[in-house]
Design a protein around this nucleic acid. Sequence first.
DNA 1: TCAGTCACG
DNA 2: GACGTACGTGACTGAG
Length: 935
Amino acid sequence: MAFGKGCHLHLIDGSAFIFRAYHALPPLTRKSDGLPVGAVAGFCNMLLRYIENNNGPDAATHVAVIFDFSSKSFRNELYDQYKAHRPPPPEELVPQFPLTREATRAFGISCHEIEGYEADDIIATATCKAREAGGRVTIVSSDKDMMQLVGGGVEMLDPIKNKRIDREGVFEKFGVYPERVVDVQALMGDAVDNVPGAPGIGPKTAAQLIQEYGDLDALLARAGEIKQAKRRETLIAFADQIRLSRDLVTLHCDMPLDFDLDSLEVRDPDATQILDFLGRMEFRTLSRKVAQRLGVEAPAVPEDAGQLARERPAPEETAFPPIDRAAYETVRTRAQLDAWIARIQEAGHVAVDTETTSLNEMVAELAGISLATAPNVACYIPVGHRASATADLFGGSDLAPDQLPLQEVLDALRPVLEADDILKIGQNIKYDWKILARHGIEVRPFDDTMLLSYALHGGLHNHGMDELSERYLSHIPIPIKELIGSGKSMVTFDRVPIEKATPYAAEDADVTLRLWLTLRPRLHRVRVTTVYETLERPLVPVLAHMEMAGIKVDRDTLSRMSGAFAQKMAQLESEVQEMAGRPFNLGSPKQLGELLFDELKLPGGVKGKTGAYGTDVNVLEDLATEHPLPGRVLDWRQVSKLKSTYTDALQQAINADTGRVHTSYSIAGANTGRLASTDPNLQNIPVRTEEGRRIREAFVAEEGKVLVSLDYSQIELRLLAHMADLPELKTAFREGQDIHAITASEMFGVPLSEMTSELRRRAKAINFGIIYGISGFGLARNLRIPKDQAQQFIDRYFIKFPGIKAYMDGVIQGAKRDGFVLTLFGRKIHTPEINAKGPGAAFARRAAINAPIQGTAADIIRRAMIRMEPAIEGLPARMLLQVHDELLFEVERGAEDALIERARSVMVNAPDPAVKLSVPLEVEAGTGQTWAAAH
DNA sequence: TCAGTCACG
DNA sequence: GACGTACGTGACTGAG
């Protein structure tokens, strides 16, 4: 059919589809050869959805998908900086470009691209032709550059919101009608495409100016009449740049097209063709979907390469049989055990999971061990299950019958668990490593599925087994609650009947093995192998050693402090209640808020989203000028915190056997690569207040030993200076100057000799603020100064240190483009919320700015820790704790200087040879009998 | 189990 | 131009 009146042409912006598909979906690869196909899968889904929705009054009679030929176009000849900041497409995406063309054709839709032109120009030209021929046009795209084409039968369709945009829609967006859109765009510029525009003029001002003056030429001609001085000068000074910007954003309607509209007529999809393509891509789910829609039988696609449910971004390389718990074996005889050992030696790898009586590895007793060598090939070896479900009158009970003796099992498994040529696979293997280490077995070599996931998907989701199983295997393992219960009635695993324990425990090993089969092949494709191999895996034994070493904590010191705190609390409590005129619970923010703001009618009560008054330290400090009560409450809170969280809880945490406190570090807990310390958290022992710091006096060295603390000085600021390229700060660090004073001097133009502590304090707050993704509001609150003044400081900082702005923009741009940011060592930190709408995006932006800095610092100390053990070998010293930028050691008295020398060298040189920093790292050292003295 | 608070880097 | 605001953690408490 010839295109003309009554026809309706749909032009789909194919490149936008591809990028959206790429970013919206998790990485996906073709099972048979590892070809990345995630974007292709997403693209096909979008095409399918488009076809399904293509009916009703706006249905197409003609349709084409238009692609960009390459990133270079004639616009680069107009302006060599056009799209200059745009990085090359991600490597995984490149091979998918031709596949999306193939997909389009398979779906029976024409596709076109022309060298030297952007898709936008082809769409513009086709649109003009269609309009001239008297037909309608729908441009399927959310690109605002295309809005200039709307009108006269041309509309846009935003495929994300499924919303049509007409002339009024354009006016809503730009404040002008389509014919003036280029004028507005010329003024506002476009950071993404690097269209310069007019500096300092944004969308609102641009629209207002064009509305007022009619069009851009009139505006530029009459620029001298503008009242605002700055605006007037900008428009005069940058007139040429603005005209150039208009040329850049104006789409061309006169391109030579190598196709005519008639050829774009909608065709019925050819099932064979589509299914053939989807089959080659190994998209099983999509094939099924298409077959169903077209009413043909679904072809047999061997592997599911594209489970596309967003909630369950699925097992693309997993053609695993469903979990079959009935297939699991309970190993009760020596013959069975030997058969498993043979099977493991045959396979060369085995997933291992230990079941114990406690989450605390230092006290946990082994109940059993499960193994898996292949999907559904798994067993459970009970070794410590009890005969009765509950303890008998004497507090114990006998072992259940038909279990191999613990020691026999361990002796039989030891050669396997320590064999160089058998890979042991665990989920959070540090746990099992420690359990087995307590029985004299050193597990190696090993892989850890939790750490694989952390290296691959840090920031996207958590890395616990249940979550990984659901996400990557579409399988929900048996919840532990079903076996041991919860709360008061919870029992230990050794009380679980073996018949119930086997399916649970063997399933854990099975799932772990399947996760390994799924995740391990992705490492190198996503280029995080080095991260996993140098920053994650080697840390496991290092942390295990530290955790098992523990740190000596003096119970008497804590106990005495607890008593003193209790007295003080009681005194403060009666004081406060006297002031209040009635008793109330000081620990209840709700009661306190009501007292302060409803009863005492103090000013400034602000209710949060739950309807409760805020009563945090900032609020109470402000109120302290009005009334004596809030200050006393703050005192009470401080003491209460110290007592409950530290002096009391720490005593509970002292291990009865070792007399020491053994924390547990989570390697994959923090998004940035930092460790987290739990049970108890030894990374937040007080230090900032005099009173709190005394808690550290309870952390002591053994008799004849001392504690040594080494900490990186200003590591994050140093990294900022390096990464954002701030010459003044780099020099200051090289010369060992006072960094905050230098900052203040640069910012406020005050010579160092005249520096005041107030200016320095402000500069310091700004320096930290920068690392956190500063905002005027945040700085204002921190410094307790007006917001506009805080904003002025920030502006001045940006002007004085232009590298900062460039760094931040670069990070944000990268995060938006890739969905992740990188540390200097290649750790990926995903930022899934970065393109979100609403306040979530602001959060994500600040997190994205902070992540490379905090993450690089975390990587550096990880490298130092991994190298520390060999470096201090031979010294009577061991590493006990890590507190983000500090390492705490225990060393025999007399050897502390040797330790400091070696440890400092390791820490200072930790980035070598992977990264060469342009600032030196410095490490401060201290020694003492207690942590308070050493720090 | 959640929200509020506060300890650390 | 509005909206909520420093980044990253874990533990304890009250309250539902």
